[in-house]
Computed example of a mutant assay.
Amino acid sequence: MNKVNQLSFAGQTIYCGLDAHKTNWKINCRMEDMEIASFSQNADAVLLKKHMSSNYPDAEIKVVYEAGFCGFGIQRSLKELGIECIIVNAADIPTTDKERKRKDDKRDARKLSRELAEGSLKAIYVPQPSMEHARSLVRQRHRLVQDQTRCKNRIKHLMMFSGLSTQSAQERWSQKYVKELLHLDCGTEQLKSALYLAVEQYQHIRKLLKEATVLIKNLSKQEPFATVQKYL
């Protein structure tokens, strides 16, 4: 019997543009200047690996996707599976006027694979998971600072709108001042309840902010963050 030659893409590179969504991916594949496939699949790195290995055995696979809501998870998953993957800023991708006016997932994936094959894309830095998670903690503290400011402004607005005032100055929100707010004569139970809820919200956020600050201080004493902090 004649032996059937197995298809092999050894020595070939397949460039894949991946347009990511929460539950599905739109993928466009090309070899140099030739588009060879366009398909959709569930958002699963293992599934993509199986598809590429089955259809393009022995080929070198390179993938690119835009930075966004999915973060670095796709890149790390594909890297663990042996697939080279980069992430790019959407604003850095060369785009034609036609592509700007007629934007959809299929075109976005095609644009990514085209630019990846041409070598025009600049990858963003992918941090180590530990550093990324530390950044998330710092960002969360920043959000709490913003939330605390919003709570203060809401309380000030409520008091000004309702004609309320305290004996203490509002420049420093001390425990004494907060206690005075809670015991303020508002005239009606409804207004007192509104002020009470606003102050309670402020106190809760302030408590969370203190906890976040302690966590970051403790983190700054550990490596590699302690070393990095010396150069800030």
Rank of each mutant, 00 (worst) to 15 (best):
M1R: 04
N2G: 04
N2D: 14
V4N: 04
Q6K: 08
L7N: 01
S8F: 02
A10D: 08
Q12P: 00
Q12Y: 04
T13R: 00
I14A: 00
Y15L: 01
C16L: 08
G17F: 03
G17E: 04
A20K: 00
A20I: 04
A20G: 00
H21T: 01
N24M: 04
W25R: 00
K26M: 09
I27S: 00
N28H: 09
N28Q: 05
R30H: 00
M31E: 08
E32M: 05
D33H: 05
M34S: 05
E35S: 10
E35K: 06
E35D: 15
A37P: 06
N42Y: 14
A45P: 10
L47R: 11
L47C: 12
L48I: 07
K50L: 12
S53E: 10
S53P: 01
N55V: 02
Y56T: 00
Y56M: 00
P57D: 03
D58A: 02
D58V: 00
A59I: 04
E60D: 14
I61V: 09
K62S: 03
V63I: 10
V64E: 10
A67C: 01
G68F: 07
F72I: 06
F72Y: 15
G73L: 14
Q75E: 13
R76C: 02
S77M: 06
E80K: 07
L81G: 03
I83K: 01
I83P: 04
E84P: 02
E84W: 06
I87W: 13
N89V: 01
N89Q: 11
N89I: 01
P94N: 07
T96I: 10
D97T: 11
K98W: 14
K98A: 15
K98E: 14
R100G: 02
K103C: 05
K103F: 06
K106Q: 15
D108K: 13
L112M: 08
G119M: 03
G119N: 06
L121R: 13
A123V: 03
P127E: 13
Q128F: 07
P129W: 12
E132W: 12
E132C: 07
A134T: 15
A134E: 15
S136A: 12
S136L: 15
V138M: 14
R139K: 12
L144N: 09
L144T: 09
Q146P: 11
D147Y: 14
D147K: 15
C151F: 09
N153C: 03
K156C: 12
K156E: 12
L158K: 10
M159D: 11
M160S: 15
M160G: 06
G163R: 07
L164R: 03
Q167M: 09
A169F: 08
A169W: 06
S174T: 08
K179P: 00
K179R: 12
K179I: 02
K179A: 13
E180H: 08
E180N: 08
L181P: 09
L181M: 12
H183E: 15
L184S: 13
L184E: 13
D185P: 05
D185K: 06
D185L: 05
C186H: 04
G187S: 03
T188K: 04
A194Y: 11
E200M: 08
Y202T: 06
Q203L: 14
H204K: 15
H204V: 09
K207Y: 10
K207Q: 10
L208I: 02
E211M: 07
L215I: 06
K217T: 11
L219G: 05
S220Y: 14
K221Y: 04
P224M: 04
A226G: 00
T227G: 00
V228P: 01
K230V: 09
Y231Q: 13
L232R: 08
